[in-house]
Design a protein around this nucleic acid. Sequence first.
DNA 1: AGCCAGGACAAGT
DNA 2: ACTTGTCATGGC
Length: 281
Amino acid sequence: MLSDNYKTEYITKNGDIIITTDNFSLPNTLDCGQAFRFACNNKNIWSGVALGRKIEMEQKGNKIIIYNMDEDEFLNKFYEYFNLDLDYSALLQLFSKDKTLSTAIKHSTGIRILKQDKWETVCSFIFSQNNNIKRIKGIIERFCTLFGDKISDDVYNFPPVERIAYLELADLEPVRAGFRAKYIIDAAQKINSGQVSFENIESMPIDKAREMLMKIKGVGPKVAECILLFSCKRYEAFPLDVWIKRVMSTYYPNGLPQEFKDYGGIAQQYLFNYARNTKLI
DNA sequence: AGCCAGGACAAGT
DNA sequence: ACTTGTCATGGC
């Protein structure tokens, strides 16, 4: 359906990367509930931690500036992280044939699905269950500060899985994750031991991938879909949370149109953001 | 103050 | 196979 080798325009300048595209909104992408470690300061700079480094960005119209990053690191890690190999222009044009999606897209333009670290995504969405986004962010920051490596002032990497695998439940108490803490330990142990492996997860039949992820305690159908969508490039994954369930019952009682299903997860993210922000649904 | 949150699990029909 | 109570915590 979409081109396999789409390329987004960029240049390097003074040690920064400057991306040019009409389909990239920093606020909508970084604050739509898929990632939890980004925030905007009062000077319009978005700052966060991803793929083991602090990253600072700014949007000026259709240009996205990634400060202090060389081309190697950009091409090897963040080009894929920001999903710059997907033709959002063509995809959103397809989605816009549907009236509800068209409205949602106009409301929250420029959402992109990030390709995040898998272990971090497992933890993040375990923390997310029966929880609100504000508190999820707090839990994750405490988790990183307590167990991650310091990379600069007040900035900590996401803790490595092998470190968490050998913690006691009581060690996680200051994270204040509640009943989810035991799930984090179980996830770390199963991933660290290889009982749950990410190898081939991006290409294996999606039902196999779901089944494997759900071997982790605390990973049910919804969290599994989030992991597949937000860290494995499985755009057909379709997380059903309370917001999307409302959208579906109101606007799509017979399910999402078939022609969108290969990219249903991306459509889902526009619908989620629209529903959550407007509270109209 | 009380309801709700990017749910999952276990026990009960 | 479906339904229900329970699970910590704190945002609003």
